[in-house]
Design a protein around this nucleic acid. Sequence first.
DNA 1: AAGCCGGGGCT
DNA 2: AGCCCAGGCTT
Length: 363
Amino acid sequence: MNIEELREWPAEDFQANLLHWYEENKRDLPWRRERDPYKIWVSEIMLQQTKVDTVIPYYERFISLFPSAKALAEAEEETVLKAWEGLGYYSRARNLHAAVKEVNEVYGGMVPNNKAEISRLRGVGPYTAGAILSIAYNIPAPAVDGNVMRVVTRLLLMYDDISKVTTRKKIEAIIEQIISEQHPSEFNQALMELGALICTPRNPACLICPVQLQCRAREEGVQETLPVKAKKAKPKQKNMLALVVKNKAGQVLIQKRPETGLLANLWQFPNVEADNIEAIVNYMKETAQLEVDVNVTVKQHVKHVFTHLIWEIDVYSGEVGEWGEETDLESSSFKFVDKEDIDWYPFPVSHQKIIDRMVKGEE
DNA sequence: AAGCCGGGGCT
DNA sequence: AGCCCAGGCTT
């Protein structure tokens, strides 16, 4: 199917079937009760690579904490990360925060309503730009996510690899041809809803699909083999050694991660990629100037799987006595905190598991 | 173009 | 255990 053939494709029938189905079957989601572009924006960022059911409680809490672009712009980044804690892909939160500040300063708090300006905001790519323009401003712009690519490749029997950028662009061109000019917001949401509820990755419910008669994959019986997607490399394993250090006051040592890279700006327990205790003892000596007395027993093992990485973490406990006057934790990434204050700091889930066992569980 | 960047839920 | 997901940024 190319763009020329698409001109003869019955797009209006498709729109009618799809929009009617959507009106009858759409889920009642918090952001669907809103037209505030800021709130639509927040929901779209949260929904990147994240399931609706996971997002809902985060969205509710986030909006109550930061009800407007102004409120979010005025918040501390650590507060924003804390609100995002556990949701993953933390650069989304940092980019959203930076972009909202820009909207406040450059656009007077008004989310831009055109492709050029909105696409310039940090964290707003082709999908999110189209989603905000269509859903918040009812502008007929394509919003092509994984759902839409799955639906369209099946509908039009496309064997293009959806992991390629060129395929996404091709599908955007197709959507521009078939989108409802009268109801672009509902059209885009309906396509995604169809992908989420009917045209699922496995076992699609073709028998109750509102557009089954227009689906070429269904016609050929190959709906389960689409879309084509290149396989990703297996995640690489890293053996880590983490340390829960207490001082004489019973405070716990935590460390802020670097401002770029994996889990940027989140907090953690000091750790090294190694498999022997000497490595972490030396690390503490060199980076924090702390002489730590480490208990040789492994207190906990944490396995955490990322998209491209697997952490196998052996967790040890340790204590420090007095430390020299030259030790200046104030200006380093390290910090001793009271146990009851640790909840104020954003931690990745892997280290929340350590908090639960080693700090809250109190061995 | 390819790699980096989380976490949870499904089969 | 492998797959999926309302993607975008960096190199």
